[in-house]
Amino acid sequence: MASAVSSLNRSAGHAQRPLATRDSAWVRYTLTAVALGFLALFLALPLVAVFAEALRRGVGAYFAALNDPDGMHALRLTLLTAAIAVPANLVFGVAAAWAIAKFTFPGKSLLITLIDLPFAVSPVISGLIYVLLFGAQGWYGHYLAAENPWFPAFQAWLIEQDIKIIFAVPGIVLATIFVTFPFVARELIPLMQQQGNDEEYAAITLGASGWKTFWKVTLPNIKWGLFYGVILCNARAMGEFGAVSVVSGHIRGETNTLPLHVEILYNEYQFVGAFAAASILALLALVTLVLKSVVEWAHARRRA
C-alpha cells in the first residue's frame, strides 16, 4: 500500500500518510502560496513600511524623533492606561467567567450579552457614552453645577480636588477599560464551561475552602487561557484609538496616547516622527505577539 501511494504521489513527498488526508501537490502549494502571499501583502509589508518610513532619514533622525517630550509623554500615558485597564479587566474577567461557567443564576444570559456589548458597539459610541455621563453638559457636570446637590460635601470635595474625568487621564482609562472589557472573560468562559465543575467538587468534598479551591484547582486549569486573554486585552488597550480620541481632548503632552500622537504627527507633515511613534506601537505589538507565542508554545509542551 505504502509503495503504491508513494508511486502515485511521488512529487508530494509524504508517502506514509493515508491517501484521503492528502490533496494533490498543486492544491497544497497554491493554498500555502496564497496564504503566505496574503500575509506578506497585508501584514508584513505594512509592518516593514512603518519601519522603513521611520528610518528613512537615518537612525539619528529616528532617535531624535523618538526623543520628543510629547511623544515620550504619550508613551508613558499609553503604558499607564494599559497598566490600569488590564488588571481591572483581569479581575473582572475571571470573576465573570467563574460566575457564568460554574453557576446558573437568573440573568446569566443577560450578563453574557452585556459582556459582549463593547465588541458590538463602535468605539466612538463607547467614547461618547463617557462624554454624556461625565461631560460638563452631562450628569457629572450637572451634579457639579447643581445648587442643591445630593451629598453636598461630596460635591464640595470634587470641586475642591478639581476632579476631572473626561478630557483627562481618568476618562481615557475608563474608555479603555470599556473597550477591552470582553477580552479576558470571552477567553475564559468557553474554557471553564468545557472543564466543568468536577474538579472543584472533588476539592470541596476533600475539605478545601473556596479560596483554596480557586487557587489550587481552578486557576491552574485556566492559567493559559487567562494569559492569552490578558495579552489580547493589553494589545487592544495600548492600541485603542476611536474611544480614546473622543474623550481625550487631544492636549499635547497631557492627554494624547501614542495612537493619537501618531495621527497628530502625521497630520503635521512630520512623517519620520509619525512613523517612529508608530514603530514603537508596532514594537509593543510584536512583543505582545512574541509573548503570546511563548505562552502557546509552553502550553503545548506541557500538554505533550
Binding site: V131, F134, G135, A136, Q137, G138, G141, K164, I166, F167, G249, H250, I251, R252, G253, E254, I264
Partner: peptide
C-alpha cells in the same frame, strides 16, 4: 502653552463638554 487642534466645530463641542 499646551495645544489642542481639531475641526473648529468639534473643538467648540469639546469645550462645551468641559475641555478646560
Amino acid at each position: 502653552v499646551k495645544q489642542s487642534h481639531g475641526g473648529s466645530g468639534k473643538q467648540a463641542r469639546s469645550v462645551i463638554d468641559g475641555l478646560r
